Computed example of a mutant assay.
Amino acid sequence: MEKMMIMEALPVAELSRLGLYKDGKHLLSPEDITALLAGRRTSLVNLKNLVGEAFTIASLDVKLSLHQSGRWGDEIMLHPIYKEITLAKGMTEEELWPILTGEQTNLVKAVHNPSTGSDQSLVFEYDGETKDLFLMTP
């Protein structure tokens, strides 16, 4: 029963293309499958022989997450290791220092939304392994 729920919840075709599902079995650890199903990122996963329309990559270390799109359905998102931190618009490195150093786990920033005329709070997290600053989804 549990295997059936996982099969229905994860996009098996995408995992197969990434080399993470073969012969009816997930090749991710149980912890990584749980992370995907809970909406979190996996640990670092090494993908091999990725082939696209205009590229071939022999090996790539990434973290994975599950993204639900109304247009495409469930998609596996790849989060590679970046050389430098990419700051969000209007954000300074000084603001990020507490999460970059691990003093805090996230950063809440009030941002003005011109379409509604009000401020909204955005929550950012930083992944030190991939050097990725990302917006947490509500």
Rank of each mutant, 00 (worst) to 15 (best):
N49D: 10
L36G: 02
Q68K: 14
L18D: 07
V123I: 15
L28N: 00
E53M: 14
S59Q: 13
M5P: 07
M77K: 14
R40T: 01
I57N: 02
F134I: 04
L28T: 00
D74Q: 13
I33L: 12
T105Y: 06
L96S: 00
G117V: 14
T116Q: 04
A35G: 05
D74R: 11
H112K: 13
P11M: 04
H112Y: 15
S29R: 04
E95M: 15
D61F: 04
D61A: 15
T92V: 01
Q68F: 09
K89H: 08
G39K: 03
Y82G: 05
A35T: 05
M91I: 15
E93K: 15
L50E: 09
N106G: 13
L47C: 07
V12S: 00
K109R: 14
E95I: 07
K63E: 02
L44E: 11
G52Y: 01
F124T: 01
D119A: 10
Q104L: 11
T130F: 10
A54M: 11
F124V: 03
F55I: 06
S69I: 03
L10P: 02
K83S: 06
E129V: 14
L28G: 02
T105F: 15
K3P: 14
S115P: 07
S115K: 15
D127W: 00
R41P: 02
V123Q: 13
G52Q: 01
M5N: 13
I99P: 00
S118G: 11
L100Q: 03
V51T: 13
A9D: 08
S43W: 01
E84F: 07
W72E: 12
T116E: 09
E2T: 11
S43L: 06
V12G: 04
L87V: 03
F55S: 10
K131E: 02
S29T: 12
A13L: 12
P80C: 01
E125W: 08
L100M: 11
V123G: 03
D127Q: 00
E125L: 10
K22F: 13
G90T: 03
A54P: 05
L107A: 05
L36I: 10
T42P: 00
D32A: 07
A13V: 04
M1S: 10
